[in-house]
């Protein structure tokens, strides 16, 4: 995002409007758009370019770490405490896999969530562009543009069916 610029925010009451607005904006070369939506709309998502997300790697890393910790914990402590039970070997892998499995899931989930918080936080936009209706029944399209193209953007948004269009400086 630019340090200085103008953001134009259009408010829509339906996904269809947002979709046509985004299409129009893209065609006109406005790439820096953010969409606010009260629901997880896959229709909007398809209009936007896919973004590389590191969450998958985080999840995998967490899971792998969990599996490793599980095995280390069980095997390591069993060696520390070589107590025989039921004629089983000190390192009884099948039961240890159970522990390892549970920790795989646990650490995988924890890593995934950490990733999510980080991502939510990272993709947060300035509260002044946000409208509390965006979480209930309105969609928002927020375009950052140069001063001279504000009118074009506003027109594009209105044409697409925006109920209202405003601009904010930052």
């Amino acid at each position: 995002m630019n340090d200085k610029g103008i953001a134009v925010i259009g408010t829509f009451d339906a996904v269809e409007g947002v979709r046509s607005a985004v299409t129009a904006l893209h065609q006109s070369g406005f790439k820096d758009t953010t969409i606010y939506s009260p629901l997880n709309s896959h229709e909007i998502e398809t209009e936007l370019e896919p973004v590389e997300s590191p969450i998958g790697f985080l999840a995998f890393g967490g899971a792998a770490a969990g599996a490793g910790i599980g095995l280390l914990l069980t095997i390591g402590t069993s060696i520390q405490w070589p107590l025989m039970t039921g004629g089983q070997p000190i390192i009884s892998l099948p039961p240890f896999f159970v522990i390892s499995f549970e920790l795989t899931i646990l650490f995988g989930v924890l890593a995934t969530l950490l990733g999510m918080f980080w991502q939510i936080h990272r993709s947060k936009s300035d509260p002044k562009f946000y409208d509390s209706r965006f979480s209930v029944d309105r969609f928002g399209v927020h375009v950052v543009c140069d001063e001279d193209r504000v009118v074009v953007v506003k027109n594009l948004l209105s044409t697409a069916g925006a109920e209202e269009v405003r601009d904010e400086r930052f």
């Binding site: 405490w81 107590l83 025989m84 039970t85 039921g86 004629g87 089983q88 009884s92 039961p95």
Partner: peptide
Amino acid sequence: CDNAPCEPVCPTYASYH
């Protein structure tokens, strides 16, 4: 028992061989 069924099920090693 050498293969005591009571031992491995104890979570705290209270029963061991």
